[in-house]
């Protein structure tokens, strides 16, 4: 019996090393295949540049957080022109779990006067794997990263964590080399040519947006953290094409939940944008749309900000 227990223990150690070797081999060989719980980022995303910039940032008036709808929708140049210093910390498919991690890491360094959080409703139903991999491939590996991966609880995220940890330990840090991306240094925004919505006519099944427990808990953590530091939080839903907006059947009840936690502005109700002219695709504003949206937000902020906008927001 003791011999059996010893063999099992030895085998567990052997298998662990084999497993680790397998993951490393996949990573070093840049393997990426369908269904595989291992995704290697062929080139680091712009998140690498953003987290680099954020560490050298002085206090800003406004910090933007959220998914790609943020780094394609909140043009910091427009805010600068109106007297607000701003930084855009939007990242690929960022969900509340990753937002919470970013705040845990960087909030005290940035000390923003206001946090504008774009609450992409579908993000509450997202497992957070895509963003987790983006973060692990772009930022440092520490306890915050481990907590984030443990919240996501997905084998792909665990594998990415392990590989990124080894990469970091071995000093093989990623370098961003693509300078044609339109990234604006110390801004976080992506400057790009105006494109028009190529997804016009697409229909979306009407369905309830799911709210996953771990995402809601992370969201509450964000709210609580900002409250503790007396940093005002403004929740914003950036405009989306009307077909897509109308497809979210439980939208109003989720909005109610959000309003119960912080000030909330739904710009799909505040603004009337053109589905073709103001959008780049079915999720992102183009530069024209971003300008209209940003100017309206600045107007509301200047007017004493969201509390006065509530009536407009709720359609009353």
């Amino acid at each position: 019996m003791k011999g059996f227990a010893r063999s099992v223990l030895l085998f567990v150690m052997f298998a662990s090393m084999f497993y680790a070797g397998g993951i490393l081999t996949l990573g070093l060989a840049r393997v990426s295949a369908l269904h595989l719980n291992f995704k290697f980022l062929d080139s680091p995303s712009l998140t690498l540049l953003r987290v680099g910039d954020v560490q050298n940032l002085d206090a800003v008036d406004v910090l933007f957080l959220g998914s790609s709808r943020v780094f394609m929708g909140f043009d910091t140049r427009i805010f600068n022109a109106h007297g607000y210093s701003a930084f855009n910390l939007g990242t690929v498919a960022q969900t509340p779990v990753q937002t919470a991690m970013l705040l845990d890491r960087y909030l005290d360094g940035i000390a923003p006067g206001l946090v504008v959080y774009e609450v992409y409703l579908e993000g509450f139903g997202n497992d957070g794997v895509e963003s987790a991999i983006d973060m692990l491939g772009s930022d440092r590996i520490d306890m915050h990263a481990w907590q984030m991966v443990n919240t996501v609880r997905n084998p792909t995220a665990y594998h990415a964590f392990f590989f990124a940890w080894i990469e970091e330990r071995s000093g093989r840090l990623l370098q961003f080399t693509d300078d044609s991306s339109g990234y604006l240094p110390m801004s976080g925004y992506i400057d790009r040519e105006v494109k028009f919505n190529g997804t016009m006519g697409r229909t979306y099944p009407h369905r309830d947006v799911e709210v996953l427990g771990q995402q809601w808990q992370a969201f509450l953590h964000i709210v609580e953290k900002l409250k503790e530091r007396n940093i005002p939080l403004l929740l914003v839903q950036a405009p989306v094409p009307s077909e897509r907006y109308d497809a979210m059947t439980n939208r109003d009840s989720i909005h109610g939940l959000l309003r119960s936690q912080a000030d909330f502005l739904d710009f799909n109700r505040i603004l009337t944008l053109d589905d073709s002219l103001h959008f780049e695709d079915d999720s992102h504003l183009n530069q024209t749309g971003a300008e209209v949206f940003n100017l309206k937000l600045i107007e509301l902020l200047a007017a004493g900000h969201p509390r006065e906008a509530r009536q407009q927001n709720s359609g009353q």
Binding site: A15, Y19, G22, N37, D127
Partner: peptide, 18 residues
């Protein structure tokens, strides 16, 4: 033997649904 069993464990880890 152990390498083969470990290979199967690796396959399980790489293909297990979340």
């Amino acid at each position: 033997r152990w390498a083969f069993y470990s290979f199967i464990i690796l396959l399980i880890g790489l293909f297990v649904p979340s």
